[in-house]
Design a protein around this nucleic acid. Sequence first.
DNA 1: TAGTGGTCTAGACCACAAA
DNA 2: TTGTGGTCTAGACCACTAA
Lengths: 241, 241
Amino acid sequence: MAPIDKNSKLPLYYQLSDLIKEKIETGEWPEHHKLPPERELCQMYGVSRATVRQAMQELEVNGYIYKEHGRGTFVKPLKIRQDLLRFYSFTEEMKKLGKVPSSRVIDFCVEKCSEKVAKKMELQPGENVYKFTRLRLADEEPMMLETTYVLYEPFPGITREKLENTPLYNVLTQEFGVSFTMAEERFVPVLTRENEAELLQNLPRSPSMMIERLTYNHNRIVEYTVGIARGDKFEYRVVLK
Amino acid sequence: MAPIDKNSKLPLYYQLSDLIKEKIETGEWPEHHKLPPERELCQMYGVSRATVRQAMQELEVNGYIYKEHGRGTFVKPLKIRQDLLRFYSFTEEMKKLGKVPSSRVIDFCVEKCSEKVAKKMELQPGENVYKFTRLRLADEEPMMLETTYVLYEPFPGITREKLENTPLYNVLTQEFGVSFTMAEERFVPVLTRENEAELLQNLPRSPSMMIERLTYNHNRIVEYTVGIARGDKFEYRVVLK
DNA sequence: TAGTGGTCTAGACCACAAA
DNA sequence: TTGTGGTCTAGACCACTAA
């Protein structure tokens, strides 16, 4: 009953929140299910109330639960949980919309970065970077065109094939164990240029969204992407609390 | 030295975080200034360490401070603090860019809401709403055109004049004491229509951003806005942690 | 080694919700 | 009244940073 390991290097509150997260994600505790009271969780797992509350706080900020004073703690509906801000992942977004995402890598190379890219990524001009252009499709329909620059040094061995089959963020985090601490995105409405329109199967000068993203690992910029998304297919949605 | 009121209805941690917030906002503690250690704050204000840590956490999530394990706690630079997500306010955004914001109210009335608006705002068709259209300018230059719907019942007495001189959110929160708990925004790239282009002093069919916003007070939708922003003047920027 | 934030305990009382 | 989350205390030990 108490699979919490007091000798683990992981903090107790972290182990506990992970345990509860799993119960929620597997559906063992469905939406609006009432969690055991804090004092009961203390007994169940042999920890103090402060520890339980710290775990609960972790779950609350990550959108897994909501509390009602005097009533209890409950599992938050998935629909609301998904509204939380997170890093934009084309793959994930398309899956959420029930579409099948795919990528066609149009261009892939390692090159010494240009002045302009160096400035964006806060690098020395001439440092090695991957540069690749991908056409992103949903149900085989072109949705956006992205050119991405990724630091070469900490990520040796990225290949064209990997990018076709695995979301970029999974490649970077799972294969290389690099976490992302921050990302900054800019959205500007523009018109498609001729060559972009061709790839997007769009008319030139159609309304579209220019998306620029910088992804950080602590204070280092790991990835820089500039993309064009079809305005008739794309919208950006934010929920602020 | 200890202006914390233990008999106040306000929680101690809240009073403490407010105190520190003030020191930061007035500049008494400048950027990167080292805060007193947690144990010292305990003594200074006569509270326990858990209370101090709760106050610090409040400050951390709101972007006022950052911590470095083993080194201490420091005031976060304003530049980074401002990057935090918050409700979009045209007035505030323009001030931040060093421009003088103004509004020209083009249309103002109270009407029974249409089917379409009722659906968006989750009202019964026919309920009373304010409807007003504003041209927003920065340094006297047109930037965006917004049509806003606001519930009538909880906000009697909004006038055209008030909207010209006061940000909408200040009118609603300060005069009527209604807080906003959530907002949802959608951004879609579009082309300006003829009448919009005229007001925005733009060419028709210029790239621009359609912005749609729903503002909530708990589960009730208080405000619905649809706007068009000039693409050559507007960008939307998000920082995700 | 000393100073600092990170984690954790055991227990207390308060405020809100529901029966 | 009982059960629940919200606030708070006093104190302990750990882990990281810097001298």
